[in-house]
């Protein structure tokens, strides 16, 4: 196997009864990538995380993480990875320090390396003043940073983060991503899932996922260019009612609503005039429009609607 590859996924499938959460997935992730798995709730993100962290067995297919098979070498994988589950997985009735030492013990971090590592982890997560506070009394953002600190105590090769910034305030989110960039410089492969599409743009590579399948897989800039058709932003006081009318027009790929703004993907630029005329017939006034570079969210919506 290529030594540059950190995670290799081959025909991976996981079904729960009639529902296929992960459908015949194939992926290769290089060492040092900040890989973002993006998709709505129920897309199968958590299932992939669990399969790759060897905490769930696939229905079929195979994957290798840090050179070990998820089918036969799950316990070896667990020594090399750090994982932060979606739900806060640390002990709320233990202090910050007690949680960190507990995980240091489980990963057999040598005693003499501990003071230095713990100091560093507490430092970059700004948890030093709270080290004796019960984890249950931390704010949402601090809890996530503590989770990250515990997942990093043994300096893993691959870090799996399942929606780490879910329910975290914007400032803490920015701090959190800063920490991830620092880790990336140290050569750690980071596999992160998120439902926040704006956040996904911070990744070096994005995989759009929907209903267990990958819709797109590229770097953020390439994904934004991939629409292959113009995207127009339109303002209207009656934007909500405009959606259905616009959707019915030939050549419109997708429409999405942002307050009183509409993002419309169209097959050719001239279609804008058709749309405005059509809307005015229904008494809806467009107060202005301009061509824009689509966001990841626009791409995602156009992809899902195009299905």
């Amino acid at each position: 196997m290529n030594t540059d590859i950190s995670i290799k996924i081959f025909n991976l499938t996981k079904s729960f009864g009639n529902i296929t959460a992960v459908n015949n997935l194939n992926l290769g992730i290089k060492k040092g990538e900040l890989f973002g798995l993006v998709g709505p709730d129920g897309a199968g993100k958590t299932t992939i995380m669990r399969l790759l962290t060897a905490t769930m067995m696939p229905s079929s297919g195979e994957a290798w993480v840090a050179g070990n098979s998820i089918l036969s070498e799950g316990e070896k994988i667990k020594e090399k990875i750090g994982y932060m589950s979606q739900k806060f997985g640390l002990y709320e009735d233990l202090t910050v320090m007690e949680n960190i030492i507990f995980y240091a013990d489980l990963y057999e971090v040598p005693q003499k390396e501990r003071p230095q590592r713990i100091e560093r982890l507490l430092g970059f997560s700004n948890l030093t003043p709270f080290k004796d506070r019960l984890a249950g009394r931390l704010s949402g953002g601090m809890k996530q940073k503590l989770g990250l600190a515990c997942a990093l105590i043994h300096t893993p090769e691959v870090l799996f983060l399942d929606e780490p910034t879910n329910g975290v305030d914007p400032v803490s989110r920015r701090d959190f991503w800063k920490i991830l960039y620092d880790l990336l410089k140290e050569g750690v492969t980071i596999f992160v899932s998120t439902a926040y599409l704006d956040e996904a743009e911070r990744c070096t590579r994005i995989c759009l996922m929907h209903k267990g399948k990958i819709l797109m897989d590229d770097n953020p800039a390439a994904i934004k260019r991939s629409l292959g058709m113009p995207m127009v932003e339109m303002w209207s006081d009656d934007a909500r009612n405009a959606i259905e009318i616009i959707k019915g027009i030939d050549g419109v790929q997708s429409v999405s609503l942002y307050g009183n703004k509409l993002h419309v993907a169209i097959s050719r630029s001239e279609l804008v005039d058709d749309i405005i005329i059509n809307l005015s017939r229904s008494g809806i006034v467009i107060r202005g429009h301009r061509e824009i570079l689509p966001s990841i969210e626009d791409i995602f919506i156009s992809q899902v609607e195009g299905q």
Partner: peptide
């Protein structure tokens, strides 16, 4: 129930 087991089983603990 509390969700701490998912974290625990992702570690090398036997």
């Amino acid at each position: 129930e509390r969700g701490t087991m998912e974290q625990l089983i992702s570690t090398p603990v036997k």
